[in-house]
Nucleic acid binder design. Structure first.
Lengths: 209, 209
DNA sequence: GACTGTGAAACTTTTCACAGCC
DNA sequence: GGCTGTGAAAAGTTTCACAGTC
């Protein structure tokens, strides 16, 4: 069995979402591709990494394929996340994920500001950051979401890693690398993203990355 | 002159930020790499695409390199953005970018909900979405930021493209592709990102993508 | 005929290794 | 000696083309 490209994994959630929304019973790789913005060959190759889920001459069974991707992404195991930092971004994220019924569940929201600890954000109450380790253990948290100022980011990332999270989604405007190389850190930097766009704005460019 | 990889462009903002924050007068590619999480060869290669900015045996002059990257990304031309959709994410974004003094300026925030039109969000007043085209022209907007529900995303993207924006940052949970292929669309999908993390959480994985 | 699954080719991106310069 | 700039190699990713199956 060969290694599966990271790039393929990252496309699976897009396929999954469309499969969940679509009304059809069967779909083809062309349909899936058009809906998600990828080529049909890409779709077929991505799915084929994990097995032969389709039927030649016909296509894919929607509900079967949905279940497969769900399982592949381990969403059936119910991953739980904690959000650290209840500022604009942190609270927006909690509310955003609250309203869409999500497969990744945000279980806790912590902050270090006494003024907002105990306040309600969506379905969660803001907990003191001191309880971080305790919460990670108690709630069996797999993902830490960092929405703290950059000064605190590296420190909090280490605490999260130490507490045992397996992955960190880092919104703080700084590169964090924990001393735990087994923890997967995914940066999402909104301001850097905008600055890169500035380059593409300045010249005629094709539509896709 | 050879083509410059997209991937290289996307790293430049990270270099720029650290150069802006750092106190040194000179830096080496090793320092820049460690601070931003990339390898030193990567840093050197990225910079070399645009010219020979360094001095062999010495390194790079911080302020000169900063100016170069600033110019390369066309940030000196002052790119302006409009945010469409004043929900949790849209308002968080406006406030977030407001507080950090940014090179990409958010000039306007529009929504279709009469109840919030006219309310203040950070330094902006929410404008009616009807004024979208007018605002894009008047304020010479280059970037449209989509933080609307998925039902509206495709429609608004087309309006933005039609109005003349050069790039769209799409936070809506749907793939948008406008009928204007010259408009660069960059998706940022938080829930898909989390679902992909679920896969990596489930297995021991190296720290970086 | 229609559509999947897949090896091979093309392309992109990263890493290596070292020549060139201060 | 130390560090940049850069061809060449390696790795990763996408596209092509078509055999295989329904």
């Amino acid at each position: 069995m060969q290694r599966i490209p990271d790039a393929a994994i990252r496309r699976l959630p897009a396929y999954l979402r469309w499969l969940t929304e679509c009304e059809e019973e069967r779909v083809t790789s062309v349909m899936l591709g058009q809906a998600t913005g990828y080529s049909s060959e890409q779709v077929r190759k991505d799915l084929a990494y994990f097995g032969a889920f389709g039927t030649r001459g016909v296509g894919y069974d929607v509900s079967a394929l949905r279940d497969e991707i769900y399982r592949i992404l381990k969403l059936d195991q119910g991953v739980r996340a904690i959000v650290v930092g209840s500022g604009h971004l942190g609270t927006a994220l909690v509310r955003y994920v609250d309203q869409g019924h999500q497969d990744v569940k945000i279980m806790a929201l912590v902050d270090n500001n006494p003024a907002i600890i105990g306040t309600q954000v969506g379905s969660l109450r803001v907990e003191p950051v001191e309880r971080l380790e305790e919460l990670v253990h108690e709630l069996d948290i797999g993902i830490g979401v960092l929405t703290v100022p950059k000064e605190a980011a590296v420190l909090v990332a280490d605490r999260l890693a130490e507490a045992g999270v397996r992955a960190i989604l880092n919104f703080a405007p700084v590169a964090v690398c924990t001393r735990h190389p087994e923890v997967f850190v995914q940066p999402i930097d909104l301001t850097l993203e905008m600055q890169a766009l500035s380059y593409f704005v300045g010249q005629k460019a094709p539509n896709r990355l």
